[in-house]
Each structure stands twice: as C-alpha cells, then as structure tokens.
Design a protein around this nucleic acid. Structure first.
Lengths: 142, 142
DNA sequence: ATGCAAGGTTGATAAAGTCAACTATGTGGG
DNA sequence: CCCACATAGTTGACTTTATCAACCTTGCAT
C-alpha cells in the first residue's frame, strides 16, 4: 500500500464507521449535518458565512442546510447586535444533545483507531502528518 | 489537531492538489474518471462488474461512467470469449496516455507529501496506518 | 448621498448517486 | 431438455448534493 492508498483507506474507513454509528443511533443526519453541527458548536457567535468559510462550501448550499436544521429544531438563530446583515447561529438544546452524542461516537471510533498503539506511535503519526501537510501548503505558495 | 482532523486534512489536501493538477493539465476528467481509469489499467480482463466491486459503487453509475468514457474515446470494449454477458474493458491508446499522465501527476504529488521526510518516517507512517486499518476491520467483525 | 462590498436567500440547473425494472446470458437440478 | 434462478449490463425515474447567478438588505468609505 502506497501513501495515497493509506491516506484514502484511513479516511474512507473513518467515514464508513462513523456513518454506520450515526445510522445505528438513528440520529437522522447526513455528513453535512455532522460537519455543520460541529462547526457551530466550536464557533462562538457563528454565522452562515463563518460556516461557508470553515467548510469551504457554496453559500447557497449552506443557507439551505441551515434552513433544514432550523426546521428540524437543531438550531436557533437571532439577529446580530452588531451587524444587521448577520444571523447568529447556535445549537438548540436538542441540537446540543445530538452534537454531544456525535462527539461521543467520534471518541469511541477514535479509540478503535488507536487501540494497540502506543502513545509514541500516535505522537509520531501526528507529527509526520503535520509535516506532510506543511509540505503541501508550502508548495501551493510557490 | 486530533487524529480525525489529521486524517481528513491529509485526504482533503491530496484531493485538492490532485484535482488542481488534473485541471491544470486540462485532461477534462472528474474524480470517478480518475478512479475508473486506474481500475481498468490495473485489472486484467476488466469488466464493468469488476469496477463496481472495486470501487464499491452502484452498477447504474458505473454503466453510465463507462458509456461516457467510451464516448470520449478513452476506452474500448469487446465481448468476452467466455461469457457473452460480459464486456471486457481496456484503455484505448488515448486512455492509456491519460492514465499514464495521471500516474505521473500522482507521483509528483506523492513526492511533495514526502519531501523532507526520512525513509524511516515514511515506513513508520505506513506501519502505523496499517495497524489502524487492521484495528477497524477487526472491530467490524465483532 | 453614492457606490461598492458583504451577509444571506432564492430559483434554476448541473452533477452525482440510488433504486427498480428489464434484457440477455449462464448454471444447476429435475 | 426445461425450468428456475443467478449474473452482467442497460435504462428510466428519481433523490441528493453542489454550483451559479440574481437579488435584497445592510454596512462602509469617500
């Protein structure tokens, strides 16, 4: 297995397993729901635009995603005090609950990944990954 | 950056960079084209069904993908001698050329990933990745 | 005030993926 | 041989996901 295969195998395995876990828990959410919930949870005074930038998606897509999640009762929005164009997004209590359950599932899955590996190995993995990523960002500035 | 973030950052970086390189070379192909070209190149006596299994996609999707690539002149197909239901797929000369250019671009990108890393580090990365993947396949059999 | 940028919404459409039906061929058991 | 059933591939209809452009409102600089 070469580098590319390793990287994609890991990413795909993660995606598959987390999808399975989410389905098993019947949370009724798709990949973008997941990413969006996390984005909002980790972003104080979150706006649609912040999500657009964070997830790198089209703003039309995000607008519809947010509408969907508002309809589902996972989010709340209220006008910003500082900029009347902006809508501040936050998790409702049910949204918070779902997001926390997601965090739990992700932690469990991460434990599966890590099982049988030493702390040194994990640090090493992280260190090497970061180095590779740094390589790429450098190269794209050339 | 945690494990999940590392994995996805690597995968996304790879995807982005290869897409950029493919676009820069104006090969006019999308992600599925790329995967399909490689699949056919690496599969002797390749059939549509083999691609379905290898890529894990719906057979309708693959049928249309192949039709598209035949129309573009990248593939050739001829009936199997052994099973009249099967169509053996192969790369045409232009398909071969494109696929080889892809291989070249991927090699270059892989070099970017690896730059500044020692052979030991790369081996270590590969070893740890494999261990993680093994963890997951075990767990899904429980 | 005016003109331009930014946040967000919407309509139209494209691209990707899925489901089910169908044709033609292959296979195994009576 | 005949039958039921499985497999390879194709097609139509559809859903989901993503993208583009137009638009409205608000903010900001001159």
């Amino acid at each position: 297995m070469n580098l590319r295969e390793n990287i994609f195998a890991l990413a795909q395995a993660y995606r598959m397993h987390i999808k399975e876990a989410v389905n098993a828990n019947e949370l009724g959410l798709n990949g973008m729901h997941v990413r969006c919930l996390h984005a909002i949870a980790n972003c104080p005074q979150c706006t649609a635009n912040a999500i657009v930038n964070q997830l790198g998606r089209d703003k039309a897509q995000i607008a519809r995603l947010i509408k969907d999640m508002l309809d589902k009762g996972w989010l709340e929005k209220h006008a910003s005090e500082f900029d009347k164009r902006s809508q501040i997004l936050s998790l409702s209590s049910s949204g918070k609950q779902i997001q926390q359950q997601l965090v739990k599932l992700e932690k469990q899955l991460e434990q599966s990944f890590k099982s049988g590996l030493t702390t040194q190995e994990l640090d090493e993995f992280s260190r090497i990954s970061s180095k590779m990523l740094a390589n790429l960002t450098e190269h794209s500035w050339e």
